[in-house]
Design a protein around this nucleic acid. Structure first.
Lengths: 299, 299
DNA sequence: TTCAAGGCATGAGTTTATCTCATGCATTGC
DNA sequence: GCAATGCATGAGATAAACTCATGCCTTGAA
């Protein structure tokens, strides 16, 4: 990492000039003279030891290095503008922003969401996906669907559904000359896993089934997102650990099957989480009531 | 958006002071005096009209608003540092980074990639997903799989496969009392579309089929990513426009069917694109040769 | 109780970055 | 040839950034 940043004002001039490809227009935008921009860019180039612009007659072009530099600097200034705008303006409109895990969104919520949208066409539901603990104070998120035990302070948590862990695979793997019948048969198959967000699933299940963690002689195959892991299972690449919520559709349609009757019961589940202070806005109430029609009764 | 950013130097002081929770340590880091930081923070607070710190004896705390503001500002300064470091230092290692569209990654490349990884365990293939025109000069990407006509200057483009456009749906929609038989039957069904990246698909196909763009009486249902759109089609929510590459697996398995025999031929296709200067590194050559074994012969 | 230490604040003054103004240079188009 | 366009240069002006000296308040040790 560079110990010192170059002139921040120079970087601002660079970003504006590169956007416009014009010192004059950049100057207009920043309410300074063209020569101020010229001076700033010149100084920045000297500080960095890198030529950022090709000066042409009537036009300006970025050098290769200027072009490479621009996206990061642009992102930074967008960050600054956005953060400052957010600090100074707190807009609320009738958008309902719900944060969920990407996997829950793709496998459970999104397939159902059209029903809510049909029933409530005036509510603009936006799904944002994140695994982080949601920060309601920023005002960006109205509610979140999170996995856990519901014991979060300062928020209202409504139980939605629980999950179980169990292996799933394509029905194809149950047939043929070497079918997958017993947990011990896993030795011959590829274990499909999801990195990061569900990287404990196989360990949890294998431990519960009393099997060695190194049961498979095949190299494990990892995917970034669980829907990819499950798709690989559907495609017959190997055996994945499913969770009820994520695989119920695929199980119902026969795309996936449970080869063994060992399920890991879960003592946690999915909750709709909302700030106590704003848990009863009309939009959020409607969304919550609809959500509760979509989940099975609590066992 | 805020028309003017506050003092950039002030923001730098804020970020450093918030990180250290100490004006004195921030001053050390920035090689100025404590009072300089004090002045800068005071001025920034005045500019923003927001108190950012709580001054306590011997300690400093962020206000709630200061806490909210910090992540965005921190991200911005990290962007600036990273971009500047990258400009001044250029690293390369032996990872092979391939940029593709997210949809191509999930539907075509990733399901096949394990074969390459088995054959070449010493090559660490990383997939990065982007829709932007790839910039090889930054050094972040070694190759890209892109859709087009292969006429890009300064790069080597190897043909992989072509695509056709056609509607796909669940087999369930072909049955029942009101089956989907003729293109005119689309009037009774929801058109599933992918926003942004493929938002022209229905228009292209309906135009080619000689149907009105407003054929469906149902509201269209949009998704951000094409795999979600296709999953919605698999789930029977409506009819989506598929592309050969994305739906061949689902068609082969019967999850999806083509209800009509109208395909939009494409004169473009997928290419492996690499910089001419580095198109023949051993890693990239191995990847290319393997890729060519995975695609059908060019028709 | 007194003194030292720690750490931010304030105000005056100094330094330096930022900016303006005037002008130059090179091209383009009428 | 002249006007327009647009970046560059240099001197000088302006304003931001910074330093120094000092103040205030708390805490802990002698």
């Amino acid at each position: 990492m560079s110990p010192r940043l170059p002139s921040l004002n120079g970087l601002r001039a660079f970003e504006a000039a590169a956007r416009h490809l014009s010192f004059t227009l950049a100057a207009d935008e920043l309410n300074v003279t063209q020569t101020a921009i010229s001076h700033q860019i010149k100084r920045l180039e000297e500080e960095l030891g890198v030529k950022l612009f090709i000066r042409q007659n009537r036009t300006l072009a970025l050098t290769e290095q200027g072009r490479d530099y621009l996206p990061g600097i642009r992102a930074a200034f967008n960050d600054l503008r956005l953060a400052t705008d957010r600090l100074l303006h707190r807009d609320r409109d009738h958008v309902l922003t719900v944060s969920t895990l990407a996997s829950f969104a793709s496998k459970w919520l999104l397939p159902r969401l059209s029903a809510f949208q049909h029933a409530h066409p005036h509510i603009d539901v936006r799904i944002t996906t994140s695994t982080a603990l949601v920060d309601f104070k920023s005002g960006d998120v109205d509610a979140a669907i999170r996995y856990g035990r519901g014991q979060w302070p300062g928020v209202r948590a409504d139980w939605l559904t629980a999950d179980h862990l169990f292996p799933v695979c394509s029905p194809k793997l149950l047939m043929g000359d070497r079918p997958l019948r017993k947990p011990e048969d896993l030795a011959r198959y590829t274990l499909l896993q999801t990195n990061a967000s569900h990287d404990d699933d196989w360990r949890l299940w294998l431990t519960a089934a009393g099997l060695p963690l190194t049961i498979s002689k095949q190299p494990a195959l990892g995917f970034d997102l669980i829907f990819m892991t499950l798709q690989a299972a559907i495609d017959g690449l190997g055996v994945a650990v499913g969770r009820t919520t994520y695989v119920e559709g695929d199980l119902a349609s026969g795309r996936l099957v449970m080869p063994f009757d060992i399920r890991l019961p879960a003592d946690a589940g999915f909750y709709l989480v909302s700030p106590e202070a704003s848990a009863d806005t009309p939009n959020l109430r409607a969304f919550r009531q609809w959500l509760l029609t979509q989940v099975p009764p609590k066992a």
